[in-house]
Each structure stands twice: as structure tokens, then as C-alpha cells.
Simulated scan of single mutants.
Amino acid sequence: MVCRNKDKAEAARADIIRESGNTEVHVHILDLSETSQVWEFVEAFKRQYPSLNVLINNAGCMVNKREMNSNGLEKNFATNTLGVYILTQSLIPLLQKSRGPRVITVSSGGMLVQPLRAHNLQSQGGFFKGAKVYAQNKRQQVVLTEQWAKAHQVIHFSVMHPGWVDTPAVSASMPQFRQMMGERLRTAVQGADTVVWLALSRAAPATPSGSFFQDRKPVQTHLPMAWTHSSTKDVQKFMGQLETLAQRARPQAAEPQPGSPTEPSPALDVQHHV
């Protein structure tokens, strides 16, 4: 589990061990909003583990005012998009060494009302609204997943909407929405169902890689007659900008050292990013 808060992570780890009886649950501390730290984490992880079976990108944030991280990047974008890009892109070599590897990214149905704004990934200028920026980030995750699926056919990529779930994050970021939805919100267990199914079921890899899922079924990524479709040019521009921003934030210490001795640990079953 890759977590930001050590105390909450250790509590979750203890719960998992108690419920499952599996003591092989390990915690790594990382703030995904800090881009340079993501680089440092992935390089350390690759030195420790020779392969990776499943990666679940579940971290996310909705910051309701424009804030910057230490690399000068807008915090929602840094967490929801660029951090996911660096983490997944860097771990693809380890995933390719596994049998039937999978990557699941937890997106949101909110992305259905937002296009890919390749010209303004960090929401510069104009009125800043956290919910809108979040939805744009989630559209970016969908496009990323589609591009990864085309480029890496050995890995099964998927992105999903868990439904509207009653979580502390929803309460803190969208209190009016939570009050309006009331009992119609799902439980955390219900929200996690499709994530777990995509990670573990035998049926999931039979579905097309790169699909967007809800309730264990592939669903459309655009509403009928929507204006949210992206041109090939915009997608290419988006991917190029991500790589440029990622490399700019890469610390020199995170550069892999050719020929450096390493002694990897046994392969990790599931690297659950929360």
C-alpha cells in the first residue's frame, strides 16, 4: 500500500491482516502530489522488487483553490494525473515481467462532462473550481489508460467509475453534494467492488484493454452527442506534455545508476496505491 498518512496506513494494514490472516502487507509512504517524491519512490521500488502483478491507482484529491506543489505544478493535476503517469509509466517494465499483469485506475463519472483540454492541463487563468478541475483530471486518466492499452498489449489496462461513494473525501470536498445525495451514496465496500473484480477476476482480462468500467461492465466514455471527444493531435500533445513535465520534475538522485548492485525482494502480489 502506497499511502500519504503513516498512521492511517498502519491502521489499514492492521485491519487487512486481521481480516485476511495475510501478514505480507507492506506500507510505503508517499505524497503523490509531490512529483519529485514519486520519482524517488518508483526508483526505490524497482530496486527492491523484480516484478509487479497488479497496480491500482486509487489516490486522488480535489483541492478547491489553486495550490502549487514544490515543483510549481498545480496540486490536483500533480496528484490525479502526473503522479499516476509517472508511477504507472515507470513500473511498466516490472509489470511486463509478470504473468497476466493488470493496471486499474480509479476515475470518476464526472469526467463525462469534460473534454481533454490539452492546451491547459493545469487550469491556468479564469475561475478555478475544484470539482471541474477534478473532472478534467479524470478525463485525462481515461485518455492515459486508452493510450497505455494501445502501447502495451501484454498488460490489461482499465479505468473505472466506482459510483458516488460516501467517503470522508466526498464529505470534505463536496459537502453540498453529499447532503443532496444522502442515502443514495454507495458504501465504500460497494465502491470498491469493481476495483477488486478488475484486479482479481478471471473474467476481467477477457474484456478489451483500455475500457472504462462501471459495475463490472465496460461503459461509454462519452455521452451521446457530447463535445468531449479528443482529436489525435490533442492526445499526442497531451502525452508529450506529460512526459516533458515528468522529466522536468525528475530529481537527479532518482536517475537509475547503470551497473549498480541490487538485491531484489521476491515479487510483489499486489501493489495497492491508496
Rank of each mutant, 00 (worst) to 15 (best):
H28N: 11
N71K: 12
E10C: 01
A246Q: 05
Q179M: 13
D7Q: 14
P93A: 07
P218G: 07
M174H: 13
Q141G: 08
K150W: 03
Q124V: 14
L185E: 11
L95K: 07
V219M: 09
V38Y: 09
G191I: 09
N57G: 11
F45E: 12
G109V: 02
N69K: 09
L185Y: 04
W227C: 03
A78H: 07
K8T: 12
D215A: 14
P224L: 12
L268H: 04
Q179F: 08
S51F: 05
Q140L: 01
S171D: 13
S36I: 04
Y85N: 07
R184Q: 15
H119M: 02
R4I: 05
G130K: 07
K132W: 11
T244W: 00
V195G: 04
Q252A: 14
Q141E: 15
V106G: 09
N137E: 07
T105H: 02
D166S: 14
A135R: 02
N58R: 03
A226D: 13
A199M: 02
L245A: 05
S70T: 11
T23G: 12
W164R: 10
S90I: 02
A204D: 05
V113K: 14
F77H: 04
P208W: 10
S173W: 03
L82G: 04
K233P: 00
F41T: 08
R248T: 10
R248K: 15
L87R: 05
C61T: 15
H119P: 00
V142G: 02
V63A: 05
Q48W: 00
I29H: 01
H119Y: 12
K217F: 01
A253M: 06
L95E: 03
N120E: 07
V25F: 07
T262G: 00
F128T: 09
H152C: 01
R102D: 01
I16L: 15
A253E: 14
V142A: 13
Q124S: 10
T23C: 06
E255R: 12
V235C: 08
V54Y: 08
Q214Y: 15
F41A: 05
E263I: 11
T187G: 06
I92M: 12
V165F: 08
G21W: 04
I29D: 00
H26F: 13
D166K: 13
S33L: 08
L95M: 07
L52N: 10
H28Q: 11
E74H: 06
G21Y: 05
A172N: 11
E43Q: 14
A44D: 15
A151V: 00
S90P: 02
